[in-house]
């Protein structure tokens, strides 16, 4: 089983991964959007000042500038809060990045409601939905800081085209290591089980593991799957899980519309329908509060996963 090696913000993984891939690949550039240290690009800017370009608060420009650089054989990363990175420049991402199909890597920081006290304006809860609908886009949503580092490196080594990498600010359990093979597009079975599959992404993966521990006491053997790549999604693994366990609960720190739950439902409804529940942000905006207070209030905890599993596996 996995143990928490210490709570760490997933943005730390992005910070370290970016420096590591930039050390290996001289074409990697970093574009700053004024919040360089807040989104984990400060270390890159310090180590590679000649490859760091500041663009200020101008997301539309930064996205299309990145496209121009990628059209010139560079691999630019730009990072800002996920709300702005995906929505303020959605048209530039759609046309200049995705339709051109160029290797621009977008760091979506402050993902999820766990951003906390900044409130709804800064809580990216629709980013997966927006990004996964764009042709040619790869969407990564790693589960902890270690995996975010690996995913950031993989966004260059394994993905030829555009890539969105989602990560958060608050400190959450860091529990995976490099021995866990990371293949873009392949889900990871973190715990085998036969009664239900909990398919989770991002911070909710740890909650899913906690839920599985609790369910064991209730004699429910839950399988836990980490979907770190929302697009292209691991269709085979999801169908296999449905066939094996006959019930699916998804969990994500994102709106219930258009995120991981929707992606899983799109597959199951067409190829192997089984009873399913989606744990995610209800159709509303967030608010200010501490990360754990917000996760509790909006139903994004192991407890909520357990309730949904019980609903499916032991219906009243």
């Amino acid at each position: 089983m996995f143990t928490n090696k210490g709570n760490t913000a997933t943005k730390i993984g992005f910070r370290e991964g970016l420096v590591e891939i930039a050390s290996e690949n001289k074409n990697v550039l970093g574009l700053g959007a004024d919040i360089t240290s807040s989104v984990g690009m400060d270390l890159f800017a310090k180590k590679f000042p000649e490859r760091f370009f500041s663009f200020g608060i101008a997301e539309q420009n930064i996205a299309a500038v990145a496209a121009g650089m990628a059209l010139s054989d560079k691999i630019p990363f730009f990072s800002t809060y996920g709300v702005f990175a995906t929505l303020r420049c959605a048209d530039q991402i759609r046309i200049s990045i995705c339709y051109n199909n160029v290797p621009v890597k977008i760091g979506g920081a402050h993902a999820g409601i766990s951003v906390g006290p900044d409130g709804a304006t800064h809580q990216a809860l629709e980013d997966i939905s927006i990004m996964r609908t764009l042709p040619n886009m790869t969407v990564l949503s790693p589960c902890d800081a270690n995996q975010t580092k690996i995913a950031t490196i993989a966004s260059v080594k394994q993905v030829n085209g555009p890539c969105y990498i989602r990560f958060g600010r608050a400190e959450f359990p860091n529990f995976t290591d490099e021995n866990l093979e990371f293949i873009v597009g392949k889900g990871q079975v973190l715990k085998k089980g036969s009664d239900v599959s909990i398919i989770a992404t991002g911070h909710m993966v740890w909650e899913a593991l906690e839920a599985a521990k609790f369910l064991k006491n209730k004699s429910i053997n839950a399988q836990v799957i980490n979907i770190h790549t929302i697009k292209p999604i691991d269709k085979e693994l999801i169908i296999e899980a449905a066939k094996k366990t006959g019930a699916i609960v998804t969990a994500e720190e994102h709106q219930i519309y258009g995120g991981l739950g929707s992606a899983v439902a799109e597959i199951l409804s067409q190829y192997y329908p089984v009873p399913m529940r989606i744990v995610g942000m209800p159709d509303c905006f967030g608010e200010s509060g501490k990360p754990n207070e917000l996760m509790n209030k909006y139903g994004l905890t192991a407890k909520n996963i357990v309730q949904n599993v019980m609903d499916l596996v032991h219906p009243l």
Partner: peptide
Amino acid sequence: SIAVGMAIS
């Protein structure tokens, strides 16, 4: 913007 990205490159 694309032109700026190319010019910097």
